[in-house]
């Protein structure tokens, strides 16, 4: 969709993206909600673990 109003040339892509997000807000919202749900599931799979070995560079020469 072309931009039919005055925009600064260097921000044309940004305005175009804004227009697209508003125009397709429902599909965008659904996608964001789905991805958020997936990440929320992974968040609850996250383990609280401390690995001392991971804190230090095990292969470092010095």
């Amino acid at each position: 969709m072309a931009i039919d109003y005055e925009v600064p040339e260097d921000k044309r892509a940004l305005y175009w993206l804004g227009d697209q997000l508003i125009t397709y807000r429902n599909p965008v919202m659904i996608v964001v909600l789905l991805v958020t749900g997936l990440f929320a599931y992974w968040t609850f799979q996250l383990q609280l673990v401390t690995s001392f070995g991971d804190l230090l560079p095990q292969t470092h020469e010095s």
């Binding site: 991805v35 958020t36 990440f39 599931y41 992974w42 968040t43 996250l46 609280l48 690995s51």
Partner: peptide, 14 residues
């Protein structure tokens, strides 16, 4: 959610 989910996704623990 996105941040911590991504941490899990790349195989790291918190």
């Amino acid at each position: 959610f996105w941040g911590m989910g991504f941490i899990h996704l790349i195989g790291l623990a918190l």
